[in-house]
Each structure stands twice: as C-alpha cells, then as structure tokens.
Design a protein around this nucleic acid. Structure first.
Length: 428
RNA sequence: GGAGAAGUACCCAAGCGGCUGAAGGGGCUCCCCUGCUAAGGGAGUAGUAUGUGGAUAACGUAGCGCGGGUUCAAAUCCCGCCUUCUCCGCCA
C-alpha cells in the first residue's frame, strides 16, 4: 500500500511513478475525500470531547441530587450526531483505503518505464550447452527415463499436474535439499508454514484483491464471504511476508532472514502454450522461497544479497542462465524492483524464469502493518524482500536437457550427488 | 464437531455500568540511604494510531482479544466471531 500522506503531499510525483508501470491514475477524487474526512474527523472529535467532559460531571451532579434529565436529552442528541458522523467517516475511510489498496507499488527511480521489451540482461552465466548429437526435449527424456509420469499425474488431477517418480523424485528432492543446505549455511532460518492461508495474508502480500481469482480457494460452505475463507498459497512469500503482521520488531533483530519450502498452488488459467509442455507451468510446483525483513537503509544491500544467492545456486548447478533487470511495467504490482533469473531451455530455445527477486520496499509492510523500532524509539515500516531460491519446475527440465548425454542418460550435477547417495548419472 | 472456562498493559493480576486509561504484585529504569555473600526508602514505566501544533512541548480523539449492539455514559450489560485451556467425540 502506498503512503496516503505521500499521495496527498506530492500527487504528481506518485502519478508519474505509477505511469512508469503503465498505471494511469487520477487523484482528484481521492484528495477531496481525504480532505473531507479530515474536516469531519476534527468536528467529530470535538463533539466526542464534549461528550466525555459532560459524562465525567454526571456522577457529581447526581450525588448532589441535581436533575440530569435535561442533560441526558442533550447528550442523546449529541450522541446521535456523533454516530451519524462516525458512519460517514467509516464509509469514507473504506472508500479511501479501497482505492489506495488497489494502487500498485511505485517502481524505484532507476527502473526503465515500459514492459518486457525494456528488460535489461545484466549478466549471462556459463556456456550455452552445444550438443554434437540430436538433443531431446525434457518431456521425452523424463518419460524415457521414467522420472516424471505426466499421464498418471493428469489421471489423478487433470491437466497441469504430474508426478515425480523414482530417480525423478530423488532428483527433485536433491535439488530442494541442496537449496536448503545452502540457505542454512548462509544463516537463514528454515520455515515450514501452513499451506492454507487466510484472506489477510493475500492482502498483506499485495496479491489481493487483484489476483484473488488466481488462487485455489478452499471452499467452506459456512463462509460465503471470501474474507473468511482460506486459499492454497501461490508462493511461500504470501506466508513469510505476513509472519510479523501487526507487530513492531526491535531494530536489533533486523535484518531477519527466512526461507521456506512449500509447494505453490496456482490456477494459471488459460496460460498454456503448446511449447509449455511438461512441467514448465503447472498448478502445483515446488519452491524454496527466501524472504528478508530489513530497515529501509539495509534493503538495497539485502536485495543484492538475495540476487547473489539465487545466482549462486544456479551457478553451482552449472547451468547456463541469465540475470535480467525488469522494466517497471514487468515488475509485479507489489514490487518496487525485480530481477529475474532465467534458465536456458535448449529444446525451447528460450530462457525461462526460475527465480524472481524483488524488493517491495514498505509496500507490503504498510498493507499488513509490520513495523520496527529503531535505536531512538522511532517507529517505521520495515522493508520486505523476497526471492525464489529456487523453484524447481524450470530448473528440473533445464537440468535434464542441459545435462543430457548422447546415450539418453543424464549426468547429475556434482553438487547434487551427495543428496542422491553419490549417484552420478541417471539412466535406464 | 460438542460441552465448559478464560482472553486487561513487558509478565502476573484486580475491577464487572460513571470518581478506572485502568488497583496490587513482579520485572525493568532512575534517585536516595546503607554497606561484607544482603536489604530498605522514593519516583517512573501503554505502546500505538490519528488531529491541532515548529515541536522528541501541550492538548483533543480512538484504544481493556476482534466486530457489532444497548446506554446520557461500557473493560464492566447483550449478540456474533477468533484464540487458548479442560473434558467428550471424530480420526482415511
């Protein structure tokens, strides 16, 4: 959520920043409502002060046996006026927050405006693999080696589902274990959060109300209202970023560094493309997510750290990939800046995202009221940063393809071998 | 899922319609006295949000799990919800 004060003080500035993200807004109405609310609030506070003052005198008057009926009548009228004002104030506040809650975050000043076409490749890692034999795609490889059972996944749950089996399951688990080990080495705290979350988490992370239709809701006939229902988390970020909602953490605890493993559940409605066969885009995939809570001062460094960590994981796997800085319009709504890590999928001839590292600045913290207290007891909103570290659904196919051999086997990257009982190759 | 009990400040806890923004402890901070493994006396200790304001001054408003209601007035009465504890049930 953006700072309403900032919008009121420098509307043009905010407007310009949002325009870079492709979001055109007009604040005229908002500013009027805020002014209206302020005036009414002042007026109502005075009425309340009057009521409190008179109320405090009543016991004394009663003790003296003085008549109070007349005062009661007056106070009743005053009370009605206060109630009426409060009702208007509530409605006004609701309108204001609803409007502001829908605004995306402002992009950092250094971002280019525009969409995907303005993303900049920052760095390319490792050699693009060349094959002196006819390379296979990951679907064929995984099927031939019996690593992924696409058909039975579909049988169990429909399109967009698969199941890992045998060495495939071991390889998937090895990847996750490798990531976990690396994060533990870096001093991040391991979190296993609930997979079903309440509406507030989606709001706090900035995914709701806009993307409320793109998650799986756990139907509860008792709760017709979505705000009372739970949904399957689309990313562990949704959980991690809300852990301290409503709390004030001491600055000595910052930065706080977490990582979590969860499956991610997404509808991905209508986004299939023929080339996205296999496990490129599914309704459920495994991901390790990293999150940091920092002060505003710490946040740029933390961002670099998260980008570095994600790259390091990919680098240690020996995969060919690239790092891109996203243009303002390609960053998700909550984020002020995002770097994507994209892995080369030989059969597709393109790079696919395996990690997205973002800084929300105080946007999420404002939504879920996560604050910190500094040395001078000053209260401020924390910055929240997140990054995949990593999602396996693209790493796995990329790895299978990039590490394939002429005989149809797949070499296991060295860093994964300890997590697969020393196995060096996957073959029939 | 059912039945009971409870949710008050950093912690424990009193209050059960007005004199309570909250008694009393504990803890913590500061001051005084005294001095040998101690103890005594005093003061302070709700953070926060929001408004007026130059203000880290002062004052107003909100705030006793959350949300409603009754009332001139609610921590206190009523309704709904959430959480915790105890007992029962369920448990692929």
């Amino acid at each position: 959520m953006l700072d309403i004060k900032l919008i009121c003080e420098r509307p043009e500035e905010v407007q310009a920043a949002l325009a870079k993200k492709g979001c055109q807004v007009d604040f005229t109405n908002l500013l009027e409502q805020v002014a209206k609310r302020k005036a009414l609030m002042q007026q109502t506070d005075l009425l309340k002060a009057e009521r409190n003052k008179v109320s405090a005198q009543i016991p004394a008057l009663k003790k003296q046996g003085l008549p109070v009926e007349e005062i009661f009548a007056k106070m009743r009228a005053l009370g009605d006026e206060i109630a009426a004002n409060d009702k208007v104030l509530d409605a006004l506040s609701q309108e204001i927050t609803d409007f502001v809650a829908k605004l995306p975050n402002m992009p950092d000043p250094d971002l280019l405006a525009g969409e995907k076409e303005n993303n900049q490749v920052v760095k390319v890692y490792n050699q693009k693999p060349e094959f002196d034999f006819k390379a296979k795609n990951h679907v064929d490889l995984c099927t031939a080696l019996n690593l992924i059972d696409y058909e039975r996944g579909v049988k169990l749950s429909g399109g967009g589902h698969w199941l890992y089996r045998g060495d495939g399951a071991r390889l998937e688990w090895a990847l996750l274990n490798f990531f976990i080990q690396e994060h533990l080495n870096d001093g991040y705290e391991f979190i296993l959060p609930p997979h079903m979350l309440g509406y507030n988490c989606g709001f706090g992370a900035g995914q709701f109300p806009k993307f409320a239709d793109e998650v799986f809701w756990v139907e509860d006939s008792e709760a017709e209202d979505r705000k009372k229902q739970k949904f399957m988390l689309p990313t562990a970020e949704t959980a991690l970023v809300n852990m301290y909602a409503g709390e004030i953490v001491d600055v000595s605890k910052l930065p706080m560094k977490f990582f979590a493993y969860t499956p991610c559940y997404r509808k991905e409605a209508g986004s299939y493309r023929a080339e996205e066969r296999g496990m490129i885009r599914g309704h459920q995939f495994n991901k390790i997510e990293m999150v940091q809570y920092t002060t505003p001062e710490q946040s740029p460094k933390a961002f670099e750290e998260l980008v570095g960590k994600a790259c390091s994981l990919m680098d240690k796997l020996g995969l060919h990939f690239r790092l891109s800085k996203l243009a303002a319009g390609d960053c998700s709504a909550s984020m002020a800046r995002t770097y994507d890590i994209e892995v080369w999928i030989p059969s597709m001839g393109i790079y696919k995202e395996v990690s997205s590292v973002s800084n929300a600045n105080d946007y999420q913290a404002r939504r879920n009221n996560t604050r910190y207290k500094d040395e001078n007891k000053k209260i401020g909103f924390v910055h929240t940063l997140n990054g995949s570290g990593l999602a396996t659904s693209r790493v796995f196919p990329a790895l299978i393809e990039q590490y394939q051999n002429a005989d149809g086997s797949v070499t296991i990257p060295e860093v994964l071998r300890p997590f697969m009982g020393g196995q060096t190759v996957i073959k029939l």
